[in-house]
Design a protein around this nucleic acid. Structure first.
Lengths: 348, 348
DNA sequence: CCTTAGCACTCTCGCGCTGAGAGTGCTAAG
DNA sequence: CTTAGCACTCTCAGCGCGAGAGTGCTAAGG
């Protein structure tokens, strides 16, 4: 248990440093944060905090700056308060995004833009993984000889198109019948369920190799494997305005992060199960490329089921409070949209 | 008519500067480019070139660097040679892109990546504008009450999905009939043609306001207006490695260019009609944001009809020769793919 | 025993200076 | 017209210096 006074000093240092990227000195703390203590006392406390690993000095005789552990303390103490949603922001979001409620991709793309504009960090979003989405409708269209386009529409509003090659030339009529069968059989289930069902049927129906069903299954078998959802990232120019990214090295770091979407997907995916807002600070990131970056993420849900992830990525010296509010609000907003979408439907 | 000798000096300066971003001096020119002239003579020539506006000095008594006009001369003299396609590169491209011939978006996304990897500049691509594409198939799917998904497939392999709201609730059966009608009427025409046809029919058929056709047309009217094709841009981290982008200001410039996709679309679009490789140098760009960037672009065609644009964007100090080769080769490659795609089809 | 004042110490940062190096323009001779 | 020579200009890296900020330590005070 750390003494209350010590916590307050730590909090002050982190808070001040986030506001303004100068190492913060003992004198400044006493003045700005109104402790009834002299700078000397604060110095002692800060030395203790440094020993404990919460603060460090960029060089001897500069002020202190927080370590990742220091930020962690700050963020955890923030989490206590639990008043992160901002109604005004919520309203703002609704206005910005009202026009594009239609398809998931534009919605998320616009959400990341809004996130980055509001937070001045990178806005990211991961669209729902098709695997866990509920199939609304499958449609098959003959494109060319031996080539078919599969169109998959989920209840969440995701559309996936896939060109698939088949070993025999089917007429559009055949395809219609196959699609009809598939819809009858599978609509309302998740892609994951469908896949395992297909595998089972494959095994059972090995005999009737040429039936319509066999064909249908062969078509789907290839088509229903999706890699992942889309990632949306935006706000590079926002980030470049920050003092934290004034040197080339760090800019390269973050631009690498942007280009390596797989990394982002992986990171977001591992956080996708947790509820509420989650903060990952600097070295807490599993990927070394993100060692000096922090993420604030949350999941959006359809009803109670988390279906996707959004968040912001910025320097470890991040306005966590603001970021948390923004991400939390945006996630709740998306959840409402997704839940509404699902609601008044079901009558196809 | 400029004297031959002068041209050679200009060429040498540009060539050397492109290779290595140091202002080039008279002594260096005589040594490296084996003129039978003394540095003093070269100095005179260079002074002339500066007067003519082809060269400039970053500061008194540094070497010369090319102006945009100087680069223009260099590029034009390059254009004479006309051996820009590179068979090895062509082969390389085929291998990289073989796996993803299927849908246009992935193909172009991958193309930009390849362009940027090979050139070390930004790779950009503009997908075919739906307006000029040939409709292969329209499909309508009921999504929710009063909401329909329109799926549009063109012969070029572009798929467009659009959620549309309609004022009355149509059954899937209605939609099928509408789609059938639309396909019968419109398949094989370009979207542009279809649109003007629709407008005409609207006028004529004002009377039969409730017929199937009227409904179909009402659906399409809204749905067939596309803003533009997609832009694909990649290679920021490539570009950041260049010495030209070692200061923050320029990085911001280029990242703004990346984020402002509309600008890129506009620029590429205005160049989309010209045949062959086109080079736009620095201030030749209509947009002031691009004043210090150059673009090398070309169009890819389906048969003889240009349908889209690809290119690279980099600093004015660009390896134009290499960039031209790469872009030209890639454009030809895409043209082959698109033309093949269209070829063995037509039998739906 | 904790707090505080005082003080010497350390480190960064900005400034101006300097000398080396590179390249020029000009002039006068070939 | 070309070239050698030379004075001149400008950048750049390195250095020293002083100001400023902040620390750690010690010794005195509550």
């Amino acid at each position: 248990m750390i003494e209350d006074r010590i916590q307050k000093v730590l909090w002050a240092v982190v808070d001040s440093y986030i506001l303004n990227p100068d190492p913060v000195g003992s004198r400044f703390v006493t003045k700005k944060y109104a402790f009834n203590l002299s700078p000397a006392t604060i110095r002692n406390i800060m030395a203790d905090l440094e020993e404990m690993g919460f603060l460090r000095q960029p060089h001897t005789s500069a002020g202190r700056i927080p370590t990742d552990k220091g930020y962690r303390f700050y963020v955890d103490s923030l989490a206590q308060r639990e008043d992160s949603e901002d109604p005004r922001l919520y309203h703002d979001l609704s206005e910005r995004l009202a026009a594009i409620r239609q398809d998931m991709d534009s919605l998320l793309a616009e959400t990341t833009k809004t996130l980055s504009k509001l937070s001045h960090y990178l806005g990211v979003a991961l669209s729902p993984r098709p695997e866990t989405s509920t199939l609304s409708l499958i449609s098959l269209v003959r494109y060319k000889e031996n080539e078919v386009v599969l169109i998959l529409l989920t209840e969440e509003g995701i559309i996936k198109n896939k060109f698939i090659r088949i070993d025999q030339d089917l007429t559009q009529r055949d395809l219609n019948r196959i699609a009809e069968y598939l819809n009858a059989e599978f609509a309302g289930r998740t892609i994951d369920e469908i896949r395992s069902k297909i595998v089972r049927e494959m095994r059972r129906d090995k005999a009737l190799c040429d039936s319509l069903i066999a064909r249908a299954i062969r078509v789907c078998q290839e088509a229903l494997f999706f890699d992942h959802g889309n990632v949306f990232i935006s706000g590079l120019s926002e980030v470049l305005g920050l003092p934290d990214f004034s040197d080339l090295q760090r800019i390269k770091e973050i631009s690498k992060a942007i280009e390596d979407k797989h990394l982002i997907i992986k990171l977001l995916d591992t956080l996708s199960s947790t509820a509420g807002v989650k903060v990952v600070i600097g070295s807490e990131n599993s990927a070394s490329e993100m060692n000096r970056l922090s993420m604030v993420v949350s999941t959006y849900k359809e009803g109670d089921r988390p279906i996707g992830t959004i968040g912001v990525i910025g320097p470890t010296r991040m306005d966590y409070m603001g970021a948390i509010t923004i991400v939390d609000t945006a996630a709740k907003f998306l959840t409402r949209i997704m839940t509404e979408k699902k609601g008044p439907q079901k009558d196809v």
